[in-house]
Design a protein around this nucleic acid. Sequence first.
RNA 1: GCGCCCUUAGCUCAGUUGGAUAGAGCGUCGGACUACGAAUCCGAAGGCCAGAGGUUCAAAUCCUCUAGGGCGCGCCA
Length: 572
Amino acid sequence: MTQFLHDRLFEAFASALAAAVGQPVDAIRAQVKPAEPEHGDLAFPTFPLAKQLRKGPPAIAAELAGKLSVPGLQVAAAGPYVNARFEPRAFMDGVLSEARGAGVGYGSSDTGRGKTVVIDYSSPNIAKPIAFHHLRTTLIGHAIANLYRGQGWQVEGINYLGDWGKQFGLVAVGLQEYGDPARRGEMAHLVDVYVKANARAETDPAFDAEARAFFRKMEEGDPEARALWSELRETSLRGFQPTYERLGIRFEHVDGESLYEDRMDAVIEEIARTVGVKESEGALIVDLPYAEGEPPVLLRKADGSTLYATRDLAAAEDRWERFHFDRSLYVVARDQSLHFAQVFGVLKAMGKPWADRCVHVSFGRIMGMSTRAGRLVLLNQVLDEARARALEKVKESAASGRIHTEEPERLAEQVGLGAVVFGDLKNRRNTDYTFDWDEVLEFDGHTGPYLQYAHARACNLLKRGGGAPARADAGLLTLPEEQQLARMLARFPVQVRAAVEQDEPSFVARHLIDVAVEFSRWYTLGNQDRDKRVVHETDAALRAARLALADAVRIVLATGLQLLGIAAPESM
RNA sequence: GCGCCCUUAGCUCAGUUGGAUAGAGCGUCGGACUACGAAUCCGAAGGCCAGAGGUUCAAAUCCUCUAGGGCGCGCCA
């Protein structure tokens, strides 16, 4: 567990404190906090001890600080706190060798070796519009998959298509009414028809009944209905593919609810046998005692067709049989938390020992989406707009001679998507965040392009300085900015681990900002003071040391961006 | 009506699971480039952490209530 430099120093401090206090390390560990920068790196408040020892916190802190002697740490009391500062030279040396020794991928570990995680993400409903809000499950799921892979997990990413259900009936029936034969193979056309059919069904019960009838025919295996279903599914999949490609997403599996149509009876039978089902108002339900007042789970409608809860139950079992997972994640909007509580509750009631390995990784809504003429904003529109805006910037930079690029279009794509992707992932996944077209496409401030820019500058420094030095004297890096930067670099693996543990990519996103801020500050010192330039003009040893630090920054930024699914161009 | 989640600077969000004077971006105002790349950096103004109680040595953080908002609640997914 204590594999990274920061972990080792933390543990050393905690165990020394534990010994001095005479308490178990576990209890002490929870008390050790990050310190305010001016006080060092780690802090231990003595208030809880004060009560037990009946002494004042400052006295205890002073006494403890006097007792502690830990290699690599400078321990000092400050009021009621015992603070530890990482011994600068050794710490800097440790950070540089750890990060540069690991290279891109720094922060990875093998803690997940032999373990399997199933991740259900993106999972669009076929024949429904792919709007901007699909971005969240897609990007969060992708980042989580990358994070688990980095810790050695076997990742089974599943794009679980909503390719079964009444909406197909709606589109099928809608095609007769609103379809344009010439546009039959177009995804946009399907969306068009779906939107119209959906609106029609709201007010026209006869139309709605037709759609239901069509879906029932699908379930019964009617060849004509199945042929149309198959065609619509193909059209949709073709329509999604370019979006996944530009985001760099590939799924291990593309499944669909349709996969389980012939397992419905078996699942219902098993539930009937283990949990018990009953009929209510013509429908088949399972009434769980798990929570008073919670609504029952519907397994089968009065007309005999099944519901998505039934299919999710079958899917969960299937995933267990296929992967014997240690965790099974469902990256789905929080709107559906009741649904997953029900599905997991049924699995538990069925006696599935793996039921508690299933986790609903929920995320909040994107508010205020109906900007621009009250229409749904399509995902590709946003990505295209981002690329177009980035292209303007790229052209400006090229015109002013700041960059040279052979492929401005490609760079614009990388930067534009970087802005959109980071704009989403920087938010904690559970917050409902407000969509603001201008903010998502913003390239100034702490954004995706800010990280990419910092990375490009680090790359450029290495280019100017003749590459990353093989050896460097860490003792020469004595500027406060350099120390602060080293701190941020050392915390990167800790943040990555936390991100995996809590399925929270924003931890990585926000930490990268901290790294880039410290790097930019350090870098800019050289504008005023040539002696503080990274590529020092006269002192070769200092230049090597600073280039080594820039190299470590480059590694952390590249690694973090890769985890988030954002490109890291070397020049921009 | 019942359940879940929110409310922190003008706006958008952090706040390491209870610890030191509450932080950042945008916006506003003022500075720094014939450049180790200004998509950058520095400074300033801006907060009764929705409100009221409570627990604690210590509360933005935990508990209760109130107000405001979002979402869900058997034949959609």
